[in-house]
Simulated assay, not measured.
Amino acid sequence: MSMKAKILIVEDEVPICNFIEMTLKSKEYGVLCAKNGQEALSMIPSHCPDLVLLDLGLPDLDGITVLKHLRSWTSTPVIVVSARGDETDKVEALDLGADDYIVKPFGTSELLARIRTALRHSTSIHSGTTQNQFCVKGLKIDFPKRLVTIDSKEVHLTQIEYKIVSLLAKSAGRVLTYDNIITELWGPYALKDNQILRVNMANIRRKLEKNPAAPEYIFTEVGVGYRMVEE
């Protein structure tokens, strides 16, 4: 049997920590627990977890501070699990390098799905593998050919529309903030003009979605960014 990933839970509320620990162990993940930020920062270099579940409201260091410390030296996947549902908190965490953000309370299925996505994305990056195709619900993207089809019919996208779609597809299941996308496509010094991105997204949805008002492929995290449906 293959060895499951090791996950560090950084959570000061004992009932929540116990619940997450029990959920992960039931799926045969290895589990470590830290009750505050300092303990987490001391454990990570020695235990080398494959993923960190990070609460923001810790008793010593704010979770954002912990995230900044981690991103200064490691690319270990970090999923923020927090009661803070404000868009500003989400955007800040994601822009600082969090791989995902889940608002409490959450369902176990959602948590496990987000964990699988973050681990899969991390494995792909570190193994050096490249994704040649993306297929979901009739949508197919052939990256080497730069070809997008729906139910085998070619979809004609502009160059920038294709770049947006392929960027989201390569991070399917993860939310990318508006600034993440703009920086990736137009460079770090581009004006953070969400309106340009929204116009392009409206055009993309008219071409991809049966009903642009109820998208099947690309979902909006209001005030935060976009997420491509997972395969």
Results as ranks from 00 to 15, higher is better:
residue 211 N to S: 09
residue 217 Y to H: 11
residue 205 R to D: 06
residue 220 T to G: 00
residue 189 Y to Q: 12
residue 208 L to K: 04
residue 198 R to M: 08
residue 194 N to Y: 05
residue 206 R to G: 07
residue 212 P to K: 00
residue 217 Y to T: 01
residue 190 A to K: 08
residue 205 R to K: 15
residue 189 Y to V: 01
residue 214 A to W: 07
residue 200 N to H: 15
residue 213 A to H: 10
residue 199 V to R: 13
residue 217 Y to A: 00
residue 205 R to Y: 05
residue 203 N to E: 08
residue 195 Q to W: 08
residue 190 A to Q: 07
residue 216 E to H: 11
residue 207 K to A: 00
residue 189 Y to D: 12
residue 197 L to Y: 08
residue 210 K to W: 01
residue 201 M to K: 06
residue 209 E to I: 04
residue 191 L to V: 10
residue 204 I to K: 02
residue 209 E to P: 08
residue 203 N to I: 00
residue 192 K to C: 06
residue 197 L to W: 11
residue 220 T to N: 13
residue 195 Q to I: 10
residue 201 M to L: 12
residue 216 E to S: 13
residue 213 A to C: 02
residue 218 I to N: 07
residue 218 I to E: 10
residue 190 A to F: 04
residue 203 N to L: 09
residue 198 R to T: 06
residue 208 L to W: 04
residue 190 A to I: 03
residue 188 P to W: 08
residue 215 P to K: 03
residue 205 R to P: 08
residue 192 K to F: 01
residue 214 A to I: 11
residue 203 N to V: 00
residue 206 R to H: 10
residue 197 L to I: 09
residue 213 A to T: 12
residue 188 P to H: 08
residue 203 N to H: 12
residue 202 A to W: 06
residue 188 P to Y: 07
residue 219 F to D: 08
residue 197 L to P: 14
residue 194 N to W: 03
residue 189 Y to R: 12
residue 218 I to W: 10
residue 212 P to F: 01
residue 191 L to C: 07
residue 207 K to R: 05
residue 207 K to M: 04
residue 197 L to Q: 12
residue 194 N to A: 03
residue 191 L to G: 02
residue 215 P to G: 03
residue 203 N to Q: 14
residue 216 E to K: 13
residue 220 T to F: 01
residue 216 E to T: 13
residue 212 P to A: 00
residue 220 T to H: 09
residue 197 L to A: 09
residue 212 P to V: 00
residue 198 R to P: 01
residue 204 I to A: 02
residue 217 Y to W: 14
residue 209 E to G: 03
residue 188 P to C: 09
residue 198 R to Y: 04
residue 220 T to M: 04
residue 205 R to H: 13
residue 203 N to F: 05
residue 213 A to D: 15
residue 198 R to H: 09
residue 193 D to N: 15
residue 210 K to G: 02
residue 205 R to I: 03
residue 193 D to Q: 12
residue 195 Q to C: 03
residue 193 D to F: 02
residue 194 N to V: 05
residue 189 Y to T: 11
residue 201 M to Q: 06
residue 219 F to I: 11
residue 188 P to K: 13
residue 210 K to Q: 10
residue 219 F to M: 14
residue 207 K to C: 01
residue 211 N to D: 15
residue 192 K to D: 07
residue 219 F to R: 12
residue 218 I to Y: 07
residue 192 K to Y: 03
residue 217 Y to P: 01
residue 193 D to G: 00
residue 191 L to T: 13
residue 208 L to M: 08
residue 218 I to K: 08
residue 207 K to Y: 03
residue 197 L to G: 11
residue 207 K to E: 05
residue 215 P to L: 05
residue 188 P to F: 09
residue 202 A to K: 15
residue 216 E to N: 14
residue 213 A to S: 14
residue 199 V to S: 09
residue 209 E to F: 03
residue 190 A to G: 06
residue 219 F to L: 14
residue 196 I to E: 11
residue 206 R to W: 00
residue 204 I to Y: 05
residue 214 A to T: 14
residue 215 P to T: 04
residue 206 R to F: 05
residue 213 A to G: 02
residue 211 N to P: 06
residue 192 K to H: 12
residue 217 Y to C: 06
residue 202 A to F: 11
residue 191 L to R: 14
residue 211 N to Q: 07
residue 216 E to Y: 12
residue 193 D to R: 10
residue 196 I to R: 15
residue 200 N to Q: 15
residue 213 A to V: 04
residue 204 I to G: 03
residue 203 N to C: 06
residue 205 R to T: 01
residue 196 I to C: 06
residue 193 D to E: 13
